[in-house]
Simulated assay, not measured.
Amino acid sequence: MNYKNFPMVSKVIFGRGSFNQVNDVLAPKRLGIHSPFIFLIDDVFKGNSWLTSRISLAYDDRIIFVSTKEEPKTAQVDDLVEDIILKGKERPSGIIGIGGGSILDLTKAVSIMLTNDGLAEDYQGWDLVKNPAIYHVGVPTLSGTGAEVSRTAVLTGPEKKLGINSDFTPFDQVILDSKLTRGVSKEQWFYTGMDCYIHCVESLTGTYLNAFSQSYGNMALELCKEIFLDDKLSEEEAQEKLMMASWHGGMSIVYSQVGVAHALSYGLSYLLGTKHGIGNCIVFNHLEEFYPEGVKIFKEMLAKHHISLPQGVCAHLSDSEFDIMIDVALGLEPLWENAIGIDWKKTITREKLKSLYQRM
């Protein structure tokens, strides 16, 4: 048997206030005075001097504020790469992403596309990247997606929603500072946290499960239950534990995969632009058939935190629109194989997926 030799994040700093060390971390990586560090920052932090004042810009360094109102797109990556190349004298010393999963995925993709020819959409898939990415750093300000540790940069392209999955995708450095997650709305906190919870359920019940995935998945799942069902944690403890749940949840799918919820959620996102976290929740709420225990606990979490999910998001779609979502979902074959097994096509039919979408 051939065992896949997966890369991991080589360096990580963890602790409240650790973002204050960002300049010390970056300084040894500067290639020259005309090789800037480019900071891609979620534009919700525009005007937030509490965060930006900690970044010491020098020489040609730049901050680019990026909107995350929509899911990250391949065209957005191409535009950022073109902007960086046209305004720079030399290749950047590094790309630093500060934000939630969308920003982290954009950062990973931009760092890859600065060293690889063509368009970002050309690399949607598995192991298509030929050249190592430039140095890239992830600083999550939301916890749950696992984007800080994963080997994929999930993007919506002109034809599909699919990640750039490669050995060159993972960050070279991650800074985990739970102080950066304060001020997140309750809904955003819940939806992003549920992305982690759903990762774990899909990984732990999948056919790809192994001891590596199981150990990380179990840890993240127990943390999620503690965070979202217990009342004993302080706000700071909950922030730190969710940050670690996100990390472990991301690690749980390094050697396995996600499953039904993510496959269907990608279809929603591609057609309707539904944000990933809430999309997973909308889908998972209807998946008792596949994850009975996981969905039962999920509904307890929904009730405890008084979260009302959108209803009827697919109520007015045409047959052709359903077909678009179904095509996107069926294209994610590794997810279905993990969830159902190698014979998944016998039960996961177009009619089956349409009936699931119609419930949403």
Rank of each mutant, 00 (worst) to 15 (best):
Y3V: 13
K4G: 03
F6K: 13
P7L: 13
K11H: 12
N20A: 09
Q21K: 10
V22M: 03
D24N: 11
D24K: 12
L26Y: 02
L31S: 07
S35T: 02
I41A: 12
D42L: 06
D43W: 05
V44R: 12
F45N: 03
N48H: 10
N48F: 07
S53G: 14
R54E: 13
D61R: 04
S67R: 07
E70D: 11
Q76P: 00
L80C: 08
L80R: 11
V81L: 02
E82C: 00
E82K: 04
L86I: 00
K87M: 02
K89M: 08
S93M: 04
I95V: 14
G101K: 10
I103R: 04
D105Y: 03
D105R: 04
L106F: 06
V110T: 05
M113K: 00
A120N: 00
D122W: 01
D122E: 11
G125T: 04
W126I: 14
V129Q: 07
N131M: 06
P132M: 04
P132F: 09
Y135I: 01
H136M: 07
H136E: 06
V137G: 02
V139Y: 02
T141C: 02
S143W: 02
G144Y: 04
G146W: 02
G146P: 06
V149Q: 04
R151F: 14
L155E: 03
P158W: 00
P158Y: 00
P158F: 00
E159K: 13
K161R: 09
L162F: 14
P170K: 10
D172T: 03
L176M: 13
K179V: 00
K186N: 06
Q188A: 14
T192G: 03
G193N: 05
Y197F: 15
Y197H: 03
I198A: 10
C200H: 02
S203V: 01
G206S: 15
T207F: 13
F212Y: 12
S213N: 08
Y216F: 12
G217S: 03
A220L: 03
L221S: 07
D231L: 09
E236A: 09
Q239M: 03
M243T: 02
Q257I: 05
Q257F: 08
G259T: 10
H262C: 06
H262Q: 07
S265K: 09
S265Y: 07
G267E: 12
G267K: 10
L268S: 05
S269Q: 08
Y270R: 04
L271V: 01
L272F: 02
T274W: 04
T274H: 03
G277V: 11
G277E: 11
G279N: 09
G279H: 08
E288L: 13
F290E: 15
V295F: 13
F298T: 09
F298E: 09
F298C: 11
K304N: 13
I307Q: 13
I307Y: 10
Q311Y: 07
Q311N: 13
Q311L: 15
V313N: 07
V313Q: 10
V313K: 10
C314V: 05
C314A: 12
S320G: 05
D323N: 15
D323R: 11
I324S: 05
M325Y: 07
V328K: 10
L330V: 12
E337Y: 06
G341T: 14
W344P: 11
K345V: 11
I348N: 09
R350T: 15
R350Q: 15
L356D: 15
Y357R: 10
Y357Q: 10
Y357F: 15
R359H: 05
M360P: 13
